[in-house]
Design a protein around this nucleic acid. Structure first.
Lengths: 205, 205
DNA sequence: ATACAAAAAGAACGTTTGTTCATATACTGT
DNA sequence: ACAGTATATGAACAAACGTTCTTTTTGTAT
């Protein structure tokens, strides 16, 4: 059983299609990506695609599945403990967010999300629910704990979480935009840390 | 000379094309809008379009011009005075931003911007320059004045402006998303005001 | 080696796309 | 009323699109 032939050739065609498609979709969008382009990039004819997927939309669905499957905040259980550390919790959280921003795969998926957001109702709902609400939930819990322990001033935890996450999102969008044009992100890369500093000064008691 | 025939019929065809196109583009994007669809919506044949525009892209350019021509902050001169009023300046600024968010025309242009942002390099640059930097410039000036007059705590004015504008943007994006699906925005519509309140509490001295 | 299933190729299909061109109609100034 | 220009029409085009066939090749289990 020759597992992998030369270097890493014998990767399944189906996975290859998804991989190639995720790059193309995240660069040119759904409409801007033709099945012929996908096929040629995979190295097969377009008709061969249909041995693996029913149609183009099914390919997109397979790709889009990965948009929201981010292993973010793997340790939800011990939020209560880490939230007690106040600022360093925010720093850790932000660092994870920054990592996603610069991670090639997550970057592509974020770009795809932005491109198709207004073209795909399901994506819109997932953005509002999973992407937004999950983050708000996690953060507001942490802020609530900080308030209980008088680490930060009293306010609506959801509101504070909203304020915190919105800036993270905006930084991520700008960085993703710059990187799409291969522009320098040096002036923005420290924005994450500066945001935490500013925000902590804003809420600390 | 019969100026306007029945009600307001004799509006020029060219303006009509732009008007119709701006709606279609902002709903389905550039690729998702065909010249035939535009023509039929205007009430002419697709060939007649080419009497007014060289090609499809020229139509888009005419539409896209209106994205950044927002009569925002009409009174840039008296920023120094209004900034002295501290929080009420932020409230006024935010109210203008909120108005744009809910204004049908500006809403469409914002949506178009978001849809085409990753498909159009020129749009990306304009977003970073005009859309972002102009706002940062205006706001940072105001914050600088507030600091000079000890209305707010000392910090990098650009940084403070960035923090302030990023949340405005995020609220706008979410509202635009919800309104696109005709969903209720009641829970979000007060977010603008709450943001100003929270932010002022964060920076006031 | 043979048989069978999976995957790829090649050709073709019906649409839709943006655009062009020759022709017809409508409007405007003299 | 007439000429000239601007605008609309209808037909046609070449190219690209997603998809569906039939046929060939490949890989695998017996």
């Amino acid at each position: 059983m020759p597992e992998n032939r030369t270097i890493k050739k014998k990767i399944g065609t189906k996975e290859n299609i998804i991989k190639v498609s995720s790059i193309l979709f995240s660069e040119h969008g759904y409409r801007g990506t033709s099945v012929r382009k996908i096929a040629s990039e995979v190295g097969i004819r377009e008709s061969a695609l249909y041995n693996h997927f029913k149609n183009k939309e099914e390919i997109f669905i397979s790709v889009a599945k990965e948009i929201f499957t981010t292993p973010f905040s793997s340790d939800e259980a011990n939020i209560k403990e880490s939230a007690l550390r106040g600022k360093s919790f925010l720093q850790k959280y932000t660092m994870q967010y920054k990592l996603l921003t610069f991670d090639k795969k997550n970057e592509n998926m974020f770009r795809l999300l932005m491109i198709e957001l207004f073209q795909n109702k399901e994506l819109r709902e997932q953005f509002m629910n999973e992407f937004h609400n999950d983050n708000i939930k996690t953060l507001s819990e942490a802020f609530f704990i900080m308030m209980q322990n008088s680490l930060i001033r009293s306010a609506d935890p959801m509101m504070v979480a909203y304020e915190f996450i919105s800036t993270l999102f905006y930084i991520r969008l700008q960085i993703t935009l710059l990187r799409f044009d291969s522009s320098s992100t040096t002036s923005l890369s420290t924005q994450f840390e500066k945001h935490v500093d500013f925000f902590w000064e804003s809420i600390k008691v």
